Deep mutational scan, measured.
Amino acid sequence: SKNWSEDDLQLLIKAVNLFPAGTNSRWEVIANYMNIHSSSGVKRTAKDVIGKA
């Protein structure tokens, strides 16, 4: 699996709070948010995000 930096983990926590349970396509939305805002340049999929959340 791809390494997660501390910044990416913080971003994931922020995204999970921004897009609560019940959000349509929640994990796709979170992955997309991370891909836009992450400084690491690593592209995450919904599966990556679910695996780490």
Rank of each mutant, 00 (worst) to 15 (best):
T23D: 09
G51A: 13
W4M: 12
N32W: 05
I36Y: 10
V49M: 08
G22C: 14
N32S: 14
A15Q: 00
S38C: 09
R26A: 04
V16N: 11
E28D: 11
S25I: 02
V16S: 12
G41D: 12
T45S: 10
D48C: 05
Q10A: 08
E6D: 09
E28W: 03
V49C: 13
L18W: 04
E6P: 15
R26G: 02
A21V: 10
L9Y: 14
K43Q: 08
E6Q: 12
L11Q: 03
L11W: 03
I30R: 00
Q10K: 10
N17I: 05
E6A: 12
K52M: 07
S25A: 11
L11H: 03
D48V: 02
W27H: 04
G41N: 10
W4V: 01
R26T: 04
K52T: 08
S38N: 09
N3L: 10
L11I: 14
K14G: 07
V49L: 07
V49N: 01
Y33W: 11
M34V: 14
G51H: 08
S25H: 12
K2S: 12
A31L: 05
F19S: 03
L18I: 11
P20E: 06
G22I: 08
N24G: 07
I30N: 00
K14Q: 06
Y33Q: 02
P20Q: 06
V29I: 10
S5E: 15
H37Y: 12
V29Y: 09
V29W: 11
K2L: 06
M34I: 13
S40Y: 04
D7K: 12
P20G: 10
G51R: 13
K47E: 13
I50Y: 13
N35C: 03
I30L: 02
Q10I: 08
D7T: 13
Y33E: 02
S40N: 09
S39N: 11
N35M: 04
A15D: 02
A46M: 08
A31G: 03
E28T: 06
E6R: 04
Y33C: 00
K43Y: 11
I13R: 15
V16Q: 15
K2D: 12
E28L: 06
S39F: 05
P20I: 00
L11T: 09
A21G: 10
L9F: 15
D8S: 03
T23K: 04
S40L: 06
K14R: 11
G41E: 09
L11E: 01
L12S: 02
D7A: 15
K47S: 14
E6W: 15
K52N: 06
N32V: 03
K2T: 13
N24D: 14
S5L: 03
I36A: 14
G22V: 07
V29A: 15
W27Y: 06
S40H: 10
L12P: 02
E6F: 14
Q10Y: 08
K2I: 15
I50F: 12
L9R: 12
G41C: 10
S1T: 11
N35R: 03
D8Y: 02
